[in-house]
Design a protein around this nucleic acid. Structure first.
Length: 834
RNA sequence: GCCGGGGUGGCGGAAUUGGUAGACGCACAGGACUUAAAAUCCUGGGUUCCGAAAGGGACGUACCGGUUCGAUUCCGGUCCUCGGCACCA
């Protein structure tokens, strides 16, 4: 065993087996012991783990192990986000069944998890594609429907006219279908939505209370929710068959209402085609709508994208001035924001200005700038100012008008003050097979009827074909599709849409609180004990979608009575968003061919080296740039620890760690090593307690190892051997969460029969970390001129005097006048000279 | 485009509250060990100028400007780059 190099192939499987037998993290609620629920975002079982997983779960494993060493009752569960598009794509390509593909991936990835030394309470394992899991989701959906939180409306999907099928954004490559390469267009379908907007205000306010969440994530969520105050204003159609219809617009600038010179409608707006019907513009409008359908939304909202529009052949009336305004369909107006209709004020909005210039529409100034500004004919004035040309409102300030105009409109029934959010309701319908069926039945007589609770789960049929063409596979299964209506027993048809997979990931943390069972989604008592999640860890790419949806879902379940009333409204107390793993300057991905295979790393260097490298190479929240040489370095460090240990074993195996007072230690070298040891314990502990600073924690351990290498002890030096034992044992203990296999092995070699991973974390000796002599920096005009080694007891005035006498400093003071002396005790002296 | 990050030696990064810029590691160079190589152990190093050397000067944290005795850190602006943008998860 005292070979020069450690054999991870022998060591790692041995300890993995031992941990398994020790039932690590198989916890239950325990009164009187602090709990710690640590959760990493569960993986999509795509086949094999990738470096993003390695990073994510290593961070989680280290923290779980550390908190366990600190005495917490640690719950560390794992499961599989098992529904989703890739399984279906694989089914289409390889003619396998998504279930078969998914479950075999899960089995393989689970073995990889074990080989990385990640410890979980596998009794809590759940796969979201099992009926035991999605049954509850179907039930939650029905409860939401009954409360009015789930509803149907028309919405747009990507459509491939040649495959006759709906495409996910990912299946659209540069505007073309991934399978047949035909041009993709859009189509309106009736789909299911959840009313996230009903919780917009609460989700927004909640952001400020999430003190354990990164500021950047909260900022993104706030902007995503996008609250803005303004007014809804109604414009009445003035001509044509739709005459008298009131079109609502949302505006944040009701003060500019008198300057409206036209109305812009989203091309997808139902009225766009209706208004044009029967007019000479009808063909042109239809052509324009078709054209815009093919352009993606990001492009359409680009400020530099060419603004285009077409007159729809109808007019509306300005509710304040009564002026007759043309209606345009415009490519920069989106159906999703506000009402899909915009009152255009060219004088005071950049986009409207460009549009008016292009189509020769009037530009009427209604807000006058108090500071010089070019004519609004030349450039839009978008700031606030004083109202002009605004009938009875002229003379008001923008601020006053923003209050008065909406109220005046409200009195006339022509509008109202309102709050608008960018946040849109959550579209959960997917025209796909591999997802949880939406438990609804459509009946010609009774309408849409929920599947009765006793008939849940609505199970995915297995006898379906995956072609990637035509309607969803579920719509092609006669047996699935045709069922009697639960209300009238007449002929009914099942809903064939399945749910967005974010539905599953919105409540899995609750499922994990109890051992999964087909009998209930979770046990409320368990949820009460374990929730909220103390530490949630996952990729930054989830900042606005998953991390907002699960905050919403948690509140909904609480309001529906599934969760105890007296637990937090927030699912997760603290959040860490780890950065992405790069290689050769780009995100690792199969398509770019810059993948590193974790299996090969484990085989060659072992799990401990792999773990150490991903933690050491970068702070967890930042991008990690992959480096094969860096992996080699981590491997070398563990070898160095091994050799340090083996080389000193004969000196330390028969002595106890030093335990007398630090001040009694007279041995100069030993004292230095002991100080370094306790400084390291203090530093590593602080790094783990505060902000997951694994990289600096590992650096500190490396420094200690370097120090121990320089510490030479004779066999006869009993005290020196005790200090050496204390230092080496500290390295082993501190390194344990990072490199658990190797350190268990060393712990055993020290003669211990316990598991190091179940020991207590050590605390530093405060008397050992303090130095008597400290370095004082001397600056002249802020530039470093000398370092002084002084007792920490030297006072301020003495410090300045000693500093001024230093020969190096004097050289820079000569012939100059000291106009100021800044002394920072314990740190520096700065002479300001002229 | 919009929202949110990031930019420090040859490279990954460190500097905890505005106080020694470059810890630790990689790569590189030199030395020890070895018949030799690998491995290992030890040592060195931001750039530039002066000096034989010891040593010393100037510059330096993307760029421009500001605040301050002192700025990688705070403020204003610019450039580059990455993540998200609602059907990948």
């Amino acid at each position: 065993m005292s070979s020069d190099i450690f054999d991870h192939r022998q060591i790692e499987p041995k300890w993995q087996e031992t941990w398994k037998k020790a039932h690590f993290f198989e916890v239950q609620p325990e009164k009187g012991r602090p709990k710690y629920y640590i959760l990493e975002m569960f993986p999509y079982p795509s086949g094999t783990i990738h470096m993003g997983h390695v990073r994510n779960y290593t961070i989680g494993d280290v923290m779980a192990r550390y908190k366990a060493l600190r005495g917490f009752n640690v719950m560390h569960p794992m499961g599989w986000d098992a529904f989703g598009l890739p399984a279906e794509n694989a089914a289409i390509k390889n003619k396998t069944h998504p279930a078969k593909w998914t479950y075999s991936n899960i089995a393989y990835m689970k073995r990889q998890f074990e080989r990385m030394g990640w410890l979980f309470d596998w009794r809590r394992e759940a796969a979201t594609c099992s009926a035991d899991y999605y049954k509850w989701e179907q039930l939650f959906f029905i409860k939401m429907y009954e409360k009015g939180l789930a509803y149907r409306k028309l919405s747009t999907v990507n459509w491939c006219p040649s495959c006759n099928t709906v495409l996910a954004n990912e299946q659209v490559e540069a505007g073309r279908c991934w399978r047949c390469e035909n041009e993709v267009t859009t189509k309106e379908l009736v789909q299911w939505f959840l009313k996230v907007t009903a919780y917009a205000e609460e989700l927004l306010e909640g952001c400020d209370k999430l003190t354990g969440w990164p500021e950047r994530v909260k900022a993104m969520q706030k902007h995503w929710i996008g609250k803005s105050e303004g007014a809804e204003i109604l414009f009445e159609v003035a001509d044509g068959p739709k005459r008298g219809t009131k079109i609502p617009v949302f505006t944040t600038r009701p003060d500019t209402v008198c300057g409206v010179s036209f109305m812009s409608l989203a091309p997808e707006h139902p009225l766009t085609l209706e208004l044009a019907q029967g007019t000479s513009q009808e063909a042109k409008v239809a052509e324009f709508v078709e054209k815009v359908r093919k352009v993606d939304k990001i492009k359409r909202t680009d400020e530099n994208y060419e603004k285009e529009g077409v007159f729809v052949g109808a007019h509306v009336l300005n509710p304040v001035t009564g002026g007759k305004l043309p209606v345009y369909a415009a490519n920069f107006v989106l159906m999703e924001y506000g009402s899909g209709a915009v009152m255009a004020v060219p004088a005071h909005d950049v986009r409207d200005h460009a549009f008016a210039k292009k189509y020769g529409l009037p530009i009427q100034e209604v807000i006058h700038s108090e500071t010089p500004h070019p004519s609004v004919q030349e450039q839009a004035f978008t700031e606030q100012g004083c109202l002009v040309n605004s009938a009875q409102f002229s003379g008001l300030s923008s601020e006053e008008a923003k209050q008065k105009i909406p109220h005046w409109l409200q009195e006339k029934g022509l509008g109202k003050p309102t709050v608008n959010y960018k946040l849109r309701d959550w579209g959960i319908s997917r025209q796909r097979y591999w997802g949880a069926p939406i438990p609804m039945i459509h009946c010609a007589k009774c309408g849409t009827v929920p599947v009765p609770e006793k008939d849940l789960p609505v199970i995915l049929p297995e006898d379906v074909e995956f072609t990637g063409e035509g309607a969803s596979p579920l719509a092609k299964s006669e047996k699935f599709l045709n069922v009697p209506c639960p209300k009238c027993a007449g002929p009914g048809q099942r809903e064939t849409d399945t749910m967005d997979t974010f539905m599953e990931s919105s409540w899995y943390y609750l499922r994990f609180c109890s051992i999964p069972s087909a009998e209930r989604p979770f046990v409320a008592e368990d949820v009460k004990y374990w929730c909220p999640i103390d530490q949630y860890i996952g990729g930054i790419e989830h900042a606005t979608m998953h991390l907002l949806y699960f905050r919403f879902y948690h509140r909904v379940l609480q309001d529906l009575g599934w969760l105890p009333k007296d637990i937090s409204r927030e699912p997760a107390e603290k959040l860490l968003n780890q950065g992405i793993v790069y290689k050769d300057g780009a995100k690792m991905s199969k398509s770019k061919g810059n993948i590193v295979d974790p299996d090969a790393l484990i085989q060659r260097y072992g799990a401990d080296t792999t773990r150490l490298f991903v933690l050491f190479a970068a702070p967890p929240e930042k991008v990690l740039e992959w480096s094969d040489a860096g992996v080699e370095g981590s491997y070398r460090f563990l070898g160095r620890v091994w050799r340090m240990f083996q080389g000193n074993l004969s000196l330390i195996q028969d002595v106890q760690p030093y335990s007398a007072a630090h001040s009694d230690l007279n041995h100069v070298d030993a004292k230095k090593v002991r100080t370094k040891t306790h400084q390291t314990i203090q530093k590593v502990t602080a790094d783990l307690e505060q902000d997951f600073r694994f990289n600096t924690a590992i650096s500190a351990i490396m420094e200690l190892v370097n120090e121990i290498y320089g510490f030479k002890v004779e066999l006869s030096d009993q005290v020196g051997r005790q200090v050496l034992r204390e230092s080496i044992e500290s390295v082993v203990r501190l390194l344990n969460p990072f490199a658990p296999h190797l350190t268990e092995e060393l712990w055993q070699a020290l003669g211990n029969t316990t598991l190091l991973s179940k020991e207590k974390w050590v605390d530093h000796d405060p008397s050992a970390v303090e130095l008597d002599v400290i370095t004082i920096v001397v600056q002249v005009n802020g530039k470093l001129r000398a370092n002084l080694m002084l007792s920490k007891h030297v006072d301020k005035d003495a410090l300045a005097q000693i500093a001024a006498k230093d020969p190096k400093v004097q050289g820079h003071l000569e012939g100059k006048e000291i106009i100021r002396t800044v002394v920072v005790p314990g740190k520096l002296v700065n002479f300001v000279v002229k």
